[in-house]
């Protein structure tokens, strides 16, 4: 024979569940760590820094490219002008040699070096001293 269980028994109304030791302190710390503004603030700051850095980098790259492009253009123009000038000179000299039947006195590279470096041989210096 069974006895009727009274569900208004105070013992039954007690909480039968348990939690791990120190669980609630840990729970509060876990929640606070997840809502910490420090995390989101750092992320916010980083996003701005990255954006500004990217913008500055972009402007710097653009400026450098423009500067290099302009410099290269100027150098190219100068080089082209010189080349044209030298070519013109060469043509003139060739025409002169053809007309006069003479050859350039600067026959080879060794002669050209002597002229450019203002080289004077010992024999010449000796002659000059004797004069």
């Amino acid at each position: 024979m069974s006895t009727k269980q009274n569900i208004n028994d105070p013992h039954l109304k007690q909480n039968p569940f348990a939690a791990p030791p120190n669980y609630f302190e840990g729970l509060q710390n876990d929640v606070l760590a997840q809502v910490s503004p420090a995390k989101s603030k750092v992320r916010f700051l980083n996003a701005h820094v990255v954006r500004y850095a990217a913008a500055v980098l972009l402007v710097a790259i653009g400026s450098l490219w423009l500067f290099t492009y302009e410099s290269t253009s100027q150098q190219d123009m100068l080089a082209n002008a010189l080349a044209v000038h030298i070519d013109a000179y060469d043509v003139e000299m060739l025409e002169y040699y053809a007309e006069t039947g003479t050859e350039s006195e600067l026959a080879d590279e060794a002669d050209l070096y002597l002229v450019n470096s203002a080289y004077v041989s010992d024999d010449v210096l000796l002659d000059l001293e004797n004069e």
Binding site: N15, F17, P20, L27, Q28, L32, V35, P37
Partner: peptide, 30 residues
């Protein structure tokens, strides 16, 4: 942060037991 810690201190335990009775398992309630 300190102010929210007060809210947690006041209600975390009560809310846990309320939720625990609904989901039964401790890990799920957590």
């Amino acid at each position: 942060q300190k102010a929210f810690a007060v809210i947690l201190d006041r209600y975390s335990e009560r809310l846990y037991w309320h939720v625990r009775k609904i989901v039964i398992s401790h890990d799920d309630a957590d």
